[in-house]
């Protein structure tokens, strides 16, 4: 049976893809291998977790050049007898997925959060209708390109020793020029990547409560996110911190929700958190029904107490 190939330019995501590939391989009885591009460290890391890694070392191949990357991966897939390629569904991976799928003649799904194994067929779970629903979909073409959402799978825990071998591909002449790469300013936060979130809602009524919430975030090593009105109307936080239908869909391990009533437009953005805590002065807030732990109380009383116990 043809195998599975994984690729991400980011090692952490590649390790998650390896776990996704391991589960898929187990269900479909396929081997899985990895390709890494201009990234020795990643090759070694993947090999250390038992993967057979094919390393492309061509400095003229830039991740920014989606066409050249798709071509390189296409050639790798041809050489390795695989019929499924897993990519990361971050922005880089999503952009690559469509181009690779078209070049390789594959059906493609992105933003996949989970495997759903039906009798002999593998389906993918992903958000649809702007987050209102979860679709279970199957790619029916012989070749598949599947982009897996970050944090959907835990990084693979390999035991045996894998291998790294070189892979040769023909590099197409680049049609774009990467002029500059700028790392984003230090205070830019990716709430989707955060393992823990403190989410500020409209029940956080003043600056003092907001400051308390931010302090709680520091203690819990969490990032601060918010519901839409807090950013759009009150402008207390930047818009890229909005959780929900009109913001980001997040899947942290822990979400502590402060003063959010719990409308569906908000909850779609946080419902996949592993543990949800709702702190609200209204014991009947709808958010409380969507929480694992509920604490009813005034934020100005509750937050300082939480600080006290957490810093002990």
């Amino acid at each position: 049976m043809a195998g599975i190939l994984i690729y991400s330019d980011k090692t952490r995501l590649a390790l998650e893809l390896a776990e996704a590939a391991r589960q898929l391989g187990l269900a479909e009885d396929r081997a899985y291998k990895a390709v890494s591009i201009n990234h020795d460290e990643q090759s070694l890391e993947l090999a250390a977790r038992g993967l057979e890694v094919f390393s492309i070392q061509r400095s003229e191949l830039a991740a920014a050049d989606t066409a050249a990357m798709a071509s390189a991966l296409c050639q790798t897939a041809e050489q390795l007898d695989v019929d499924t390629i897993l990519l990361s569904s971050d922005r880089r991976g999503k952009e690559l997925a469509g181009r690779l799928a078209e070049a390789w003649g594959a059906g493609c799904l992105t933003g996949v959060k989970e495997w759903v194994f039906l009798e002999g067929r593998t389906a993918c779970a992903r958000s649809a209708l702007g987050g209102a629903t979860e679709a279970i979909q199957i790619i029916n073409s012989p070749r598949r390109v599947i982009a897996i959402s970050p944090r959907a799978f835990i990084p693979v825990e390999g035991v045996e020793k894998g291998s790294v071998q070189p892979m040769e591909v023909k590099i197409e002449a680049s049609t774009i020029k990467l002029v500059e790469t700028r790392s984003l300013a230090g205070d830019t936060v990716d709430i989707q990547a955060a393992a823990r979130l403190i989410v500020v809602g409209q029940g956080v009524e003043n600056q003092e409560e907001l400051t308390r919430g931010q302090k709680l975030a520091v203690l819990l090593k969490a990032e601060v996110a918010c519901s839409k009105p807090v950013a759009s109307d009150k402008k207390w936080l930047p818009e890229d911190r909005i959780v929900g239908l009109s913001g980001k869909l997040c899947k942290p391990d822990l979400a502590v929700i402060l003063g959010v009533s719990g409308q569906v437009q908000f909850t779609v953005g946080i419902r996949e958190a592993r543990v949800i805590v709702s702190i609200n002065k209204d014991e009947n807030a709808f958010m409380n029904k969507m929480a694992d732990y509920v604490l009813v109380g005034d934020l100005l009383e509750v937050l300082p107490e939480l600080e006290k116990y957490l810093s002990q």
């Binding site: 209102a132 979860e134 279970i136 199957i138 029904k289 929480a291």
Partner: peptide, 15 residues
């Protein structure tokens, strides 16, 4: 692409 189902997710939390 074949869509098997497309439903709003169920939410079961411990509360």
């Amino acid at each position: 692409i074949e869509t098997i189902s497309n439903l709003a997710p169920e939410m079961q939390r411990r509360q």
